[in-house]
């Protein structure tokens, strides 16, 4: 547990479990690990932008999810991403929302 913020560690989420460089490692391959996290942040941001949210890496250990007004929440792994995102933006983040899909499809076509 982090003594500063009281975040309990060691919660393995299934999305973290594919063995590729930078995923399992803690003490070695630091560059790979940071690159992997940066990649996750990049992909998550592309999705979260649709809800006016951004995510950033926090000390290589957690992620900080923020709204445009600065309301923020620390999340441990991607398993906590969506419940937190819904709390922050105050609406359902539904991947099956037709309007959301339409917008994404239009963006791909461009």
């Amino acid at each position: 547990m982090c003594s500063l913020c009281g975040v309990l560690g060691g919660n393995e989420h299934w999305a973290d479990a594919v063995a590729r460089p930078g995923v399992y490692t803690r003490n070695v391959e630091r560059i790979d690990r940071r690159r992997e996290r940066a990649n996750r942040v990049r992909i998550a941001n592309a999705m979260l932008a649709r809800f006016g949210l951004t995510i950033s890496d926090w000390q290589g250990a957690s992620f900080v999810l923020s709204t445009r007004t600065g309301k923020s929440e620390i999340i441990e792994d991607l398993g906590h991403l969506w419940p937190a995102a819904e709390r922050l933006c105050g609406r359902a983040c539904d991947p099956l929302d037709p309007a959301l899909i339409d917008a994404a499809e239009a963006a791909i076509d461009d």
Binding site: W14, A15, I43, L78, G79, W82, P83, P95
Partner: peptide, 11 residues
């Protein structure tokens, strides 16, 4: 992973 967690969170 992000898509599937989003789907499972909602549905």
């Amino acid at each position: 992973g992000i898509w599937l967690t989003m789907l499972l969170n909602r549905h």
